[in-house]
Design a binder for these strands. Sequence first.
DNA 1: GATAACTTGTTAGCCGGCTAATATACGATA
DNA 2: TATCGTATATTAGCCGGCTAACAAGTTATC
Lengths: 136, 136
Amino acid sequence: MLSRVTTAFRNSLERNMSAVGLHSGQVFILFELWKKDGQRQVDLAARLAVTTPTINKMLLGLIDAGLVDRMKLENDNRATRIFLTEAGASLKEPVETQWHELEENTVAGLTEAERLIIFELLTKMKNLYAGESDED
Amino acid sequence: MLSRVTTAFRNSLERNMSAVGLHSGQVFILFELWKKDGQRQVDLAARLAVTTPTINKMLLGLIDAGLVDRMKLENDNRATRIFLTEAGASLKEPVETQWHELEENTVAGLTEAERLIIFELLTKMKNLYAGESDED
DNA sequence: GATAACTTGTTAGCCGGCTAATATACGATA
DNA sequence: TATCGTATATTAGCCGGCTAACAAGTTATC
């Protein structure tokens, strides 16, 4: 059930974001970079709660699309910083527009109270499953 | 948020099911076959709400693991029926045991009322997103 | 009966998730 | 200084989702 909602949501997001030429996962990285440009990969991964190979793969897509650049950290040759290109920065507004559109659909379908409840319950469930083998 | 819960759940399921040598998605197909053996691929896909290429890929895994067999329908040469092998049938009990274990964790963490509420809200959300481009 | 439309399954290829293994680089410590 | 441990990124490869394109069988319709 849970996974069906997620799949439905991702499909919806995918359709919605294809209007600006993005894939569903890429927008979340861009959101992070719009908030704070030049973050390290490992920090982006932590923010999105994914593993480093996953963030790496997603970034390859963004680099390929010319929305983002990689640069070595000056004082640490292990890490790389991720920077928005002009193309990446200029996507901010259209993407946010699309995002609000999606959001409005959700807002229209659920009351404020329902959103609060579901958020709380989902948090509870997340900890339930995540807590089984790993402390969050 | 939603996707994090799903990911957490799938990871949990994956760990849990590796005890009987299965992957997270395979159990759902097996559940269907234990209920009713010999279903067509397209019906299994509909039951699990996935596309035909997806069910096809998942079945290849099950065939490879020797848990399931394919057979042509006698009266329709397009369709194939999926049958449990002995190995597949004999997995029923251990898998159900594992499943109940997982279920108990969820039961322990959420009250009956909470489960009802979240189910209802998730259904609502699913229809929200699914309904955007396609009637269910 | 021939052709068109629909159904079912398969192949190819992409995205987003993971683990395991590897290469480097940095840091701490003997 | 040499070494050992830790942090970061990458590669390879798997699972579960999708779309697009295709092959092949069935059904309907002319």
